[in-house]
Structures are given as structure tokens and as C-alpha cells.
Nucleic acid binder design. Structure first.
Lengths: 154, 154
DNA sequence: CAAAGTCTTCAAAGATTTTTGAAGACTTTG
DNA sequence: CAAAGTCTTCAAAAATCTTTGAAGACTTTG
């Protein structure tokens, strides 16, 4: 087995390039690579060598967007967390908010530019594209979920 | 007609949230909203109130990822640029590189973690998801292109 | 091929974002 | 309900990213 830490740091790097802040990316990667089913905050701070404040912020952020969740941990004073089922689909869905924002910005631009201008023509292509993506992405993600359920479920 | 500048700045903001640096986002937005068919660098610097260096950097970056292109401008010493046809589809395709990076990071992680661990199970779901997305996204974008051609072409 | 004009580069300044760590809020337990 | 333990907040420090502007490379033209 190759180096786990290295693979985790690599994943963190990719996540950071995707827009997560560095500490948050490292925390998420640590969750993915943990040997245990769930992990505590001080645990993460220790493993990653970062402050408790950073871990707290990361956990808050990751919880908010639905990538991690509290895990029941009877008989422990510390909160335990773990990656949620379907987290990656969730992350991609969040991207769809971005797509919608682009659609709206184009729409707003068309109104501002008025009809029959070069700007309007460019913005119309943009709106058309993001409108399409915004409509189709959820279906694509759903198609994956269905496929997965078929593969594992029945 | 509402305020064009405001709509352009709004688009720039959305683009910046999507990861473009601020000057680059403003330049791209300026291209989208320009009344002319093509624009020059000093023009952009003037309109946006930014340095020639920033414009140069922005143009370089936007050219590299295929969002803008040189436009023929006979009888002008200045280079003219414009947004490329299908730029937004290009931008989304570039996103697919990100998706592939996630897939690869998961794959690498699985190798490192070894079989039958909690980490491996989590990473397998991740790999499965991004593998699916990586395969399907190009088809989705292609579907848009086809639809567009049908709509405008014939 | 010199001169004028245009574009790019890059080190330093500036702006922004991220992290830390200590204070304090909250929660559990004896 | 006090005390111990845990988590969150937030101002300041650190790190990072962005922009500027001037130097110089490159290109066109007379």
C-alpha cells in the first residue's frame, strides 16, 4: 500500500483548486482517508497540525454545504463527524447554483443591453447555454443515483 | 434600457466567484458587453480603469483557455480581440478537467488505502461518481451544440 | 534600419484571504 | 449547580494572491 498521507494531501490540493480553502480541503480529505468510521475535531487538528479554530471553521462549512454530518458516538463527549452518503453528488449540485448565477447574469445583461446589439447576441448565446445546463444537470446527477442504487441495492 | 455597466460588473462578480481573478473577470465581462465587434487592450484598460499590465495578463489567460481570440482588424496597429463562439461551452469543458482530477485523486487514494477499509469504500463511491460525470459531461455539452445548430442553422 | 508605437514581463506594493490562539459560550457530569 | 471539558468566535498576524508601472522586447512603418 502506497503512502496514504500523500494521497490525502493530493486530494486536498485538488479540492483547494476547486475553491475550498486549504484547511477545509485538508479536513475533508482527512475525513475521506480516516480509518475510523467517524472523527472528532481535536483529532483532525492533531493529525493535520492545524488550530482548533481552523477545524471548527472547516467543520461548520462542510456541514453547511452538506458534505459531512454528525455521527452518533455514544459514550463520548466529543462530537464525531463523517462524510455523508452522496456527498460528491451534493457538491456537484452546489455547482449548479453557480450555473444558475451565470444564467441570471446573462439574462440581466440582455435586459440592460437592449435588443439587436452585438452585446445582446453574445449574451443570448450565454443565456441559452447556461439555461440548458441548469435544466439538464439535475437529471444527469439523478441518473447516477439511479445507476448506483441498481448496482448496489437490488 | 437599464444600466449596462452595472450588469457588466455583476457578471464580473459572478465570474470572479467562479474562480477568475477580478481583473480577468472584468475584462471578460467587458468583452461580453462591448458595443463593438472587437476591442483592443488599451481600450479595456481605459474603460475599466486598470493598468495595461493587468489587461495583458487577462488577455493572455482568456486566450489560453480559449474564451477569446484575436479578431482581424485591417488597418489598425493594435490587436483586436473578441469573445469566441461557444466560449461558455469551452469554459464548462474546462471544468471537466477538474472532474477528471477528482476522479484520479480518488483512484490514487484507493490504491494507497488498500482494499476493504472504510477509506477505500468512501473513495470508491467518489471515484464512481466522478467517473460517471467525466464520461457524461462531454455528451451533454455536445447535445447543447447540436440543439443550437438545429435552432439557428437549419 | 532607425524610430515610433504596442505589448509583455516582473519585482514590489497593495489588497485580500486564511489561520491562529486566546477568550468566552455552551454542555455535560459528578 | 459548580467544575471540567468541549466547541465557537473573532481580532490580530501571517500567508497568499493581485495589481501596478516602468523597463524592455517585439513589431510595424517610413
Amino acid at each position: 500500500m502506497a503512502d496514504t498521507t500523500e494521497a490525502a494531501e493530493h486530494l486536498a490540493l485538488v479540492l483547494a483548486q476547486g475553491g475550498l480553502q486549504k484547511a477545509t480541503a485538508r479536513v475533508l480529505a482527512a475525513f475521506m482517508f480516516a480509518d475510523e468510521d467517524s472523527v472528532t475535531a481535536p483529532d483532525l487538528a492533531e493529525r493535520l497540525g492545524i488550530s482548533s479554530g481552523s477545524v471548527s471553521g472547516a467543520i461548520k462549512m462542510l456541514s453547511t454545504v452538506g458534505l459531512i454530518e454528525r455521527a452518533p458516538a455514544p459514550g463520548s463527549r466529543r462530537e464525531h463527524y463523517r462524510v455523508r452518503e452522496g456527498a460528491w453528488a451534493t457538491l456537484m449540485s452546489a455547482q449548479n447554483g453557480m450555473v444558475q448565477a451565470m444564467f441570471k447574469a446573462a439574462d440581466r445583461g440582455i435586459e440592460a443591453a437592449g435588443p439587436d446589439s452585438p452585446a445582446a447576441r453574445r449574451l443570448e448565446e450565454m443565456r441559452d447555454f447556461y439555461g440548458f445546463m441548469f435544466r439538464e444537470m439535475p437529471a444527469l446527477i439523478e441518473r447516477w443515483r439511479t445507476g448506483r442504487d441498481r448496482r448496489s441495492g437490488a
